[in-house]
Nucleic acid binder design. Structure first.
Lengths: 197, 197
DNA sequence: CCTATTGGTAAGTAACACTTACTTACAAAA
DNA sequence: TTTTGTAAGTAAGTGTTACTTACCAATAGG
């Protein structure tokens, strides 16, 4: 019998909690379904009542975290209407979110990209939305003359997103502590003012 | 009997070739050892004569590609001694290498990061060397006054590497064609001259 | 000519992701 | 009050997979 996805029964919640906990300790591939079930105190079969497969569980956990991330950032952006300030908020808030939500960033930056079916998932849809928001801000910045007219908005977005993601990798992989203030102002300084003397 | 790794027998070469070919078609996890062996026309057991496990095979294939990448870039850099020019060469050459060696970039940007034992591999040692080279150039640029004195070299490196990697993701994942000239000059323009009007 | 080593094979095995067939609980309809 | 439909959960599989073990054949050195 297939589940229709309307309710949110205790078993389902326990499975997601158990999986999140395990993701904090080890990488996706070395987590077994037996382990997930045992820690959740349910049987293995139940996982497949609520999730298509192990990857689907991963995507849904990511999605849950992403919703929080998105709403937090959007409310912060809304308070500003200077575009450069808004982009600075994005840089800072993204770094902050990645830093104090290791599971979220681990999944997003290390675990999901290698499989094509991620890009059909709801979690990926959220990323696109976030990404689109950034592009809108950049375009507005160009129109209002806050940004140089010869800037390609798509490339600027790549630079910003790439810098953010790369900055978090060391922290996620090696557990290095990241100085968010220093790194975010550093990135913003380079991206907006340039590095050339 | 353990292999000492001195010679390079035909079976070993066939396995690596077969695996490379499969990596061009699908992701690491959905490639089976049976498949690798069949396409290489050897038995499955032989894989484990030359490689510790499936991941080790991945790392060694990556390593092979990385050596070519590294030597190519270093010879290009040697021809310049203006630091900004050198960094521009790095941006351009990296994009170019990623673009015309999809397997290499797929492995490097999507497949290896999620497992901790990659960071003990020889392939990761190469990355560190490459990364160190970039840092040296930046430091030289600071000393010789080509770069602004308030720039943090580690952060500038993060921005450059992040931008390069992010720029390639779309191409690798979705097979989108990348305009290397446009993107590399675009990135360099932002990083060196800044985006603010 | 023997023997150690290397290249390679064949036949396993344990563990894993996922399935199937079943039970229980319970709410709404008849 | 009984019936029926369905959601929640279980128990016991199954096929596949990465990896292992034990073996064989060729060959080069002493």
């Amino acid at each position: 019998m297939k589940h229709k996805g309307k309710t949110n029964p205790p078993g389902r919640i326990k499975i997601m909690k158990s999986f999140s906990l395990l993701m904090a300790q080890k990488d996706f591939h070395s987590i077994t379904t037996a382990e997930i079930a045992k820690n959740a105190q349910v049987t293995e079969g139940l996982i497949y009542k609520y999730f298509k497969d192990k990857k689907d569980l991963l995507y849904q956990v990511l999605n849950k975290h992403f919703v929080e991330f998105q709403t937090k950032i959007e409310s912060r952006i809304a308070k500003e209407n200077n575009c450069i300030k808004q982009l600075e908020i994005i840089i800072f808030s993204s770094l902050e979110s990645y830093a104090d939500n290791r599971i979220f960033s681990k999944i997003l930056l290390l675990e999901v990209r290698n499989s094509l079916d991620f890009f059909d998932s709801g979690a990926y849809e959220m990323i696109r939305k976030y990404s689109r928001t950034i592009l809108e801000i950049i375009k507005k910045g160009l129109k209002e003359g806050e940004l140089k007219s010869d800037i390609d908005p798509l490339i600027l977005r790549k630079v910003i997103l790439g810098a953010i993601e790369h900055a978090c990798l060391g922290e996620i992989i090696f557990g290095r502590k990241l100085d968010i203030d220093k790194v975010s102002t550093g990135i913003a300084n380079i991206v907006f003012n340039g590095a050339k003397a």
